[in-house]
Design a protein around this nucleic acid. Structure first.
Lengths: 243, 243
DNA sequence: CAGTGGTCTAGACCACGGG
DNA sequence: CCGTGGTCTAGACCACTGG
């Protein structure tokens, strides 16, 4: 427990997470911050940072004066929408075996809303990537992603898009995806989505995520639309008091 | 800038937020952490905590080696789903004048799913509260909240439910709402919702939030279902890399 | 290279919980 | 009352950005 890079805080966090998942703590009670600090020979602040993140993620609850405890409810639910997670993982955590079909990778002209969202000049092309995610052979997520080819630092083939876009970006564009800005939109599946997702009944309600991704310099770099079958997947979220 | 409670961090945060909104920073550049610290005579850690929160909320971006900057994109969007915010505020920030109709407050028997969610024993009653939120006289949110009457420390009247439930809880139950655990569900409005929300067309897609609220002791205390007209309101979210 | 944010430490005091 | 988490300080070193 002395290396750098994962940060110390990160190491402490994953160590504790591991012990929590292994149910190593009696009655869900986690040792005091001071004890953990001396046990791992780090400062109490480092332990506190790690515990804060675990609390944000719903793994523990802290009560002033009483102690820190495992959050049984939070443990049951692993996938939370406020975190960017590969859709494969989301599918697996719902109990299905995930698969991805790369449907299409093509360059085309950006339409005006896309031009605005990505800060392009009119008439510029975009790369459009379409993917279909399966859960145990059933289609569950349709995803369409757009990015500007002028970010590319080296040539690509369609196959390079088979993984998550935020793994493509560092490799081919020397960009990092810092965050997504997402709108959650319910909709009645239009015919083309009924067909793509092989929806059993129609009309069917779908959840859609309309998002713009930003890099570290806070510039919009990708636009993505995803459509979820809600009968097989459920998006979850922890909401806290603001301020 | 020396009082206690709100915490120093909180004071620094709202001071900076204020200056950001007033666009007081040249070219969106925020002074260095060291400068801010000495300017306000607090430690750099306190400044950093405040900036971290502002970053989480999308108000600023930080770049190692470069500096801290106002996030223009984040400023445009004020209401974020991961924060518990009164629906009135959400409606106002969408540009409408909010209003609330308290439709019903009644005690009834808890059905089995509710019994499970709130950890009740079968046959126990619950208080059911129904509210309708209007945006400029148009119905936009229908909300139904359930809580167990055995938490009540003193008698209530229906009117006591006219504000947000998390203002009722401290007063009447000596409980604090720590967080909501929420599922986001799209649905096709059933007839009773078409009627309640006066939906102009049918079938219409709605967004629904199915949530369970927990207190500081991590016990479930309320269950709430909300239904949003998505043509008037849009739920937004910032998603970041996990880990 | 100087200046920035990122991480970590050691120590202090406070507010609250529960016995 | 003691032990817990909550807050804050002062100082250190590192990694990175930009000129």
């Amino acid at each position: 427990m002395l290396k750098r890079s994962p940060s110390l805080t990160e190491q402490v966090k994953s160590y504790l997470k591991q012990r929590i998942i292994a149910a190593e703590f009696e009655a869900g009670r986690i040792p005091s911050e001071a004890d953990l600090a001396s046990e791992m020979s780090v400062s109490r602040n480092t332990v506190r940072d790690a515990l804060s993140r675990l609390e944000m993620e719903g793994f523990v609850v802290r009560r002033q004066g009483a102690g820190t405890f495992v959050n049984q409810h939070g443990l049951l639910v692993k996938t939370r929408l406020e975190e960017i997670v590969p859709y494969e993982i989301l599918i697996r955590e719902h109990g299905y075996e995930p698969a991805v079909h790369l449907l299409q990778v093509e360059e085309r002209l950006a339409d005006p809303p896309l031009t605005t969202a990505l800060n392009l000049t009119p008439g510029q092309p975009v790369i459009a990537v379409q993917k279909l995610f399966l859960a145990d052979t059933q289609p569950v997520i349709f995803n369409q992603t757009f990015l500007s080819p002028h970010m590319l630092k080296r040539p690509y083939t369609a196959d390079d898009f088979s993984g998550p876009i935020y793994q493509f970006l560092p490799k081919f564009c020397q960009q990092e995806l810092a965050y997504f800005f997402s709108e959650i939109v319910p909709l009645i599946a239009p015919p083309w989505l009924v067909e793509r997702l092989k929806l059993p009944s129609s009309p069917a309600a779908l959840l859609s995520l309309q998002e713009v991704g930003y890099n570290q310099d806070n510039e919009p770099i990708i636009k993505a639309s995803s459509y979820f079958r809600d009968d097989l997947l459920r998006l979850r979220l922890i909401r806290r008091q603001g301020q």
